[in-house]
Simulated assay, not measured.
Amino acid sequence: MASPDASPAVAIGDDPASSRSGRFAGPDATADVAVVVVTYESANDLEALIASLRVEAAGQRLRVVVADNGSSDGTLAVARSHSDIVAIETGGNLGYAGGINAAMRAVGDAGTILILNPDLVVVPGAIAALRERLRHSDVGVVVPRILDADGSPFTSLRREPSLLRAVGDAAFGSRFASRPGAFAEVVHDASAYEHPHPADWATGAALLIDARVARAVGPWDERFFLYSEETDFLRRVRDLGRTVWFEPGAVVRHAQGGSGASVDLERLMAVNRIRYMRKHHGPITAAAYRGAVVMHEAARAWMPAHRAALRTVLSERTWADLPRASRHDETGSAA
C-alpha cells in the first residue's frame, strides 16, 4: 500500500463495459459510488454537474441520487430528464441535513457515498482519487480541493471549534493567516491545500464517505438545517476512530460565482455555531463560546448581515424565527 502522505494515482479500471458508456447505475445495481445531490432552486447548475459526473462514470459505477427540497424553478424536471438518475422529492424544504437523509434512503447497494453541492463540477479523475485515498485503513471520509469559479482555491478546511479559536477568528478573521492553529478555526495557510493530510472537518460541499462509516455514524442531525451539520457529522466520524483526509489530487470547482448568503442564513450560521457547542460541550463552555460569537458579530456590526446576526445571538427568543425544515401538506402548502 502506498504511503498515505502521497497523492494517489487516479486510475481505477476494474469496472464493466456499461460504466464506460457514461451512464449511471440503476437503483437495483451495485455501485462503486452513490452520488448524493441535495437541490433547491438549482436548475441553472445541475446540468453542468451531471455532465461532469458522466465523464467520471466512464471508469467506475456511479449511481446519482438527486433529492429536491421543493424547488419551484424546474430543478426536479432537469433531474428527471435523465432516465438513469434517481430523482426524489423530499416533501418540503428539509434543509441540507434532511435532504441528505432523504437521499440516503435511496442510495441502494454502494461502497461509498459522495455528497456534492449542485453548483459544483467534478474535474476528471477526482472521484477515483478520492476513492483511492479512502482505501487506507483508518480513513472514513475524504474531501477534495475546491476551486472557486475563477480558479482560485477555496478555504474549505476547518479545525474543531473551540473557545480560543472562536476568539482568535473574532479578533483577526482572515488576517494573520499564519497564526497558531489554536487561535483559528478556518485553515487559511495556503500550504495546507497543497498536500494530503488529515483534517478535523471541511465544508460539506463535497465529501466521499465510506458507506460502512455512514451507516455507523447514522443520520445527519436535522436540527441544524443548514450550517454546522457537517461539523457535527465529521466529529461523529472521528469519534468512531476514523479519520477525515484532505486529498488535493481530487478537485471540484464552483460552476459560477456565488451570490452570497442572505441575512437570515448569516443569522442561522451564527446560531448554529452555538447549538453545536451546546450539543458537544457543557453549559459553561457553551456560554463562553456564545460570548465569543457575540464578539465576532459585534466587531463586524457595521455590515447589515452581521448586525442582524448580533441581535439574533443576543436574543434567544428570536431563534424560533430562523430558517428551519418545512414539509408540504397534501395540498402542497408549507406545513
Rank of each mutant, 00 (worst) to 15 (best):
S21A: 09
V55E: 14
V37L: 07
A48D: 13
A51T: 09
L53R: 06
A43Q: 07
A29M: 06
N44C: 15
R54P: 03
I12R: 15
A43C: 01
D45R: 11
N44Q: 10
R63C: 01
S52T: 06
F24E: 04
D14Q: 13
I50Y: 14
A17M: 08
A57V: 09
D15H: 13
A58R: 15
R61F: 05
A57Y: 00
A11D: 11
Y40D: 11
E41M: 13
D15L: 05
S19K: 00
E47T: 15
A43H: 00
R20F: 02
A48N: 06
V55H: 02
V33K: 06
A31M: 03
R54A: 01
E47A: 15
N44I: 15
E56W: 01
A58I: 04
G26L: 02
A31S: 13
D32G: 15
Q60P: 11
D32C: 12
E56I: 04
L49M: 08
A43Y: 00
D32H: 09
A17F: 02
G22K: 02
A17G: 00
F24L: 00
T30M: 12
V36S: 08
D15I: 02
D28F: 15
T30G: 08
R23N: 08
T39M: 14
V37P: 03
Q60K: 10
R23Y: 02
A57G: 04
G22H: 01
V35E: 00
D14V: 03
D15T: 13
L49Q: 01
Q60I: 03
S18C: 09
P27T: 07
I12C: 09
D28A: 15
V64I: 06
G59Y: 03
S52F: 07
A34F: 06
A17H: 05
L53C: 07
A17L: 06
L49N: 08
V33I: 10
P27I: 02
L62C: 05
D15S: 14
R20L: 04
E41F: 08
G13V: 13
A48L: 14
V35W: 06
D32N: 11
T30C: 11
S42R: 12
A17W: 10
G59H: 14
A11K: 12
R61P: 05
Q60D: 06
P27N: 00
N44E: 15
S21I: 10
G13S: 15
V37M: 06
T30L: 13
S21W: 10
D45Q: 06
